[in-house]
Design a protein around this nucleic acid. Structure first.
Lengths: 196, 196
DNA sequence: GACTAAATAGAGACGCTGTTCCAGAACGCA
DNA sequence: TGCGTTCTGGAACAGCGTCTCTATTTAGTC
């Protein structure tokens, strides 16, 4: 029908992720073009702007990470699920360093309030599946107290593991990191909530 | 002798920190000039480049944070010291949001390898006092095993608290955050190290 | 009251980056 | 083989941000 594409959208996102690893978050379109060994024009053929490209990269990375996370959260025993969710983070970051780096680019909140309109909708729904699984997990772990502990659980299985792992992204991750992350998560998840 | 300075270096750093809070890490020289209500030329009279200015801001913030941290680490009981060190992080970030934000700007490693030469020396020594206190604390907490656990202790009292607190910088920090940070730190510090 | 040193003030040069533009290349199909 | 479609490729543009350069202000001193 027409000239075949030399670069798919995913090719470009892959290139951007690689450039991100070596250059950092201030990577330019020229850097991405270098990474895919192609011209900048081809990039704009797929993405409307730099902002949209990076947003899509973030969304893709988060989505892939969530696949792993959802599996861990679904383990029958709730405390095993919490531990597995935590371990999931350093594990994913070790296996996919470029995607790990991409996940640092944005946050859902930042994308919603300042990102390109074309990303808003996808950004809005990005956490839906996880949120649902989290409510379920809280129910199983805490029973009647589930509501009060939902926010703490979120820190336990996502923010804390990611925060601890984060400084190691781009460097070598020590083998004991996984145990540290799990220990921290369980400690937070077991925290008493005091009413005030 | 000569015309008195209208802006000290600290004035400019304060302005940069304020601009950083409202604008984010991509703040421009013009943003800083606006914050101090002065012209951009005066900024370059004190700092050789934007990079050096932001580097100095980072160094200053880290230094001030370390004052608090050193005090906590020096508590006589080692486990109380670990808990206090952890709690120190959300506490500092809550009291000094602008400085907390500044601490996100760089890392010692990044400054050492890519920062302006004029900052190298200061960046190199920025952790010295903490490192020393950490060796002492490890000794008190772990005795003979101190060496093997030094790295884990560093994660327990600094990286983990900061990683967990980090996503809340710029937002309101929930009151249970302090307890969560302490629980995570103690759990990591108590971790068994397995030889392998 | 001139002179000197130190600092301000701000306009503009310069480089870099995101983005656009369009001619041309590559393919399937008739 | 010619045609329409899709994508490439790279040069050019426009805007912005850093940094430089120089004139000017200010305060103390002889």
């Amino acid at each position: 029908m027409a000239r075949p594409a030399r670069f798919t959208a995913d090719d470009i996102l892959d290139g951007a992720a690689r450039a991100l690893l070596s250059i950092g978050p201030s990577l330019t379109i020229a850097d991405i073009a270098r990474a895919i060994e192609g011209p900048s024009g081809s990039i704009y053929h797929r993405f409307a702007s730099r902002e949209e490209l990076l947003g899509r990269l973030w969304l893709r990375s988060i989505g892939r990470f969530h696949e792993d996370l959802l599996e861990a959260m679904a383990l029958p025993d709730p405390w095993a699920a919490i531990a597995a969710s935590a371990r999931c983070v350093p594990d994913f970051c070790r296996r996919h360093p470029a995607q790990a780096r991409s996940m640092l680019l944005f946050s859902r909140a930042r994308l919603l309030e300042a990102g390109p309109a074309s990303l808003r909708e996808d950004a809005r729904g990005v956490n839906d599946a996880i949120d649902e699984a989290q409510v379920d997990l809280a129910q199983r772990a805490y029973g009647a107290e589930a509501d009060a502990r939902l926010e703490v659980l979120s820190v336990a299985i996502r923010q804390s593991p990611y925060g601890i792992t984060r400084p190691f992204i781009g460097r070598e991750m020590p083998p004991w990191l996984d145990d540290a992350v799990v220990a921290a998560s369980l400690a937070i998840a077991r925290l008493e909530v005091r009413p005030d």
